[in-house]
Nucleic acid binder design. Structure first.
Lengths: 233, 233
DNA sequence: CGCTCAATTGAGCAACTTCAAAATTAGTGG
DNA sequence: CCACTAATTTTGAAGTTGCTCAATTGAGCG
């Protein structure tokens, strides 16, 4: 019987979220044949800053943070990657060691695709290259905006913005809670502040009834108020 | 007589600094035929945030800042572009309105290349696309690092880092001063702080004899000390 | 010489950080 | 399922850093 094998890239639904969707059937087969699956446990690293990457990681499930640790122990999260995101692409393309570390925030299943598979397709499939280009252009815009926010907005505004970002990107579960569970410290590391400041801000939002919490879980109950805060109104 | 006409892209030395160097002779001719030259006076905008761009700008001379203005009047500089840099590329590729504003910091001479010239080459010349990709990958790395620095480093460290960045990228003139003259406010806007904080920090550096100033001009006299400060030693 | 704009300095204030301790929650093995 | 331990969250309070506003000085320019 001819069954649909979703461990094959050709049939992997995850693909639709990233630039791999620009690949031809043949390329997908080639990639699928050389890829390997990996299970990463919460807290483990997919790769670390300074490491030479010989391939990219495509996230099938779970969440990873891309961050950089400073000497004084502060870990700044630059990006949160979920299902469909490809990690390590930038380093492979620029032929540089990893600039950020990727650490699993919960158990993950990822596919590891050797570097040559990516570079081959870049060199031969303009559609694919263009797709990566557009994708990277968006990452760049996003990064530029984070820079501007860091410089112009207060911690309160950035916390509100981070909550809205998480809500928008991860949606909410049946009870209305944001469908990603992060520690307060992780949230603080996205905002770029100390965890205490983050906690106090969340407490404040809760008092205003802008958010509801239940353990680590957060639900946005007054998005308009949060929006107004972010915009400085 | 057959003279070298440097107003032609084929002969423009500026090209060697950017991804246009990956173009073929034919493409360069095509682009050169459709490009227009523009002179931009200090303070004038090449384009503004939210504007739809129908082409890119290639800087022949002068310096431009890429920045974003907040409602409260704070202007955050994300990037400084000089000779050889192509501006507006990101917006054209992502087919989006400009995310940042580009304003001339001194008199500039730029070439305006219509959008279709760029997209045509992207669609037909993999070398070119790849070159842009690598370039954008570097911009992204740089942006990520700025985010991390904003979150982890003090104003003093970031001022020092900005000075070293300017020194490295623009070199120094005969008297040892950094070969780009920015107002204190511009420097503060790169650092992402208020101009007073920036000025006070520079005064401090001067007292320690880490820098020398003469009007707006700055010379780094003790790069090692600045480096140690940046690294937090 | 007078005008305008940029740079500098002062002082008070608000935001954020840090360290420490208490309270809560999550995780683990029996 | 419970008890115990470890980890995380929360709160308190003091200490810094950086921001803002206002006033002064200085530089460039017509």
């Amino acid at each position: 019987m001819h069954e649909l094998n979703e461990s094959r890239c050709e049939n992997c639904i995850v693909r639709q979220f990233n630039s791999l969707k620009a690949l031809s059937k043949e390329e997908l087969k080639r990639i699928s044949d050389s890829k390997t699956s990996k299970f990463i446990k919460k807290g483990e690293a997919l790769f670390s800053e300074g490491e030479k990457l010989n391939g990219v990681f495509c996230v099938r499930s779970g969440v990873s943070k891309l961050s950089k640790l400073s000497d004084n122990g502060k870990d700044t999260i630059v990006k949160i990657a979920t299902k469909g995101q490809v990690l390590g692409e930038r380093s492979v393309i620029a032929e540089e060691v990893a600039n950020l570390s990727a650490v699993a925030l919960n158990d993950m299943e990822v596919c590891y695709i050797p570097k040559t598979q990516i570079t081959d397709s870049i060199n031969n499939n303009p559609h694919f290259t263009k797709a990566i280009l557009v994708h990277m252009a968006n990452d760049l815009k996003y990064a530029d905006n984070v820079i501007v926010n860091m410089a112009q907005k207060t911690v309160r505004q950035r916390v509100a913005e981070t909550l809205m970002y998480l809500d928008k990107n991860f949606g909410s579960d049946d009870d209305g809670f944001i469908a990603i569970i992060l520690s307060r410290e992780d949230i603080a590391n996205i905002v770029g502040t100390a965890k205490e400041a983050c906690i106090r801000t969340l407490a404040q939002f809760k008092k205003y009834n802008w958010i509801t919490t239940e353990g680590k879980r957060i639900s946005l109950t007054d998005k308009k108020a949060l929006y107004k805060l972010v915009e400085g109104l």
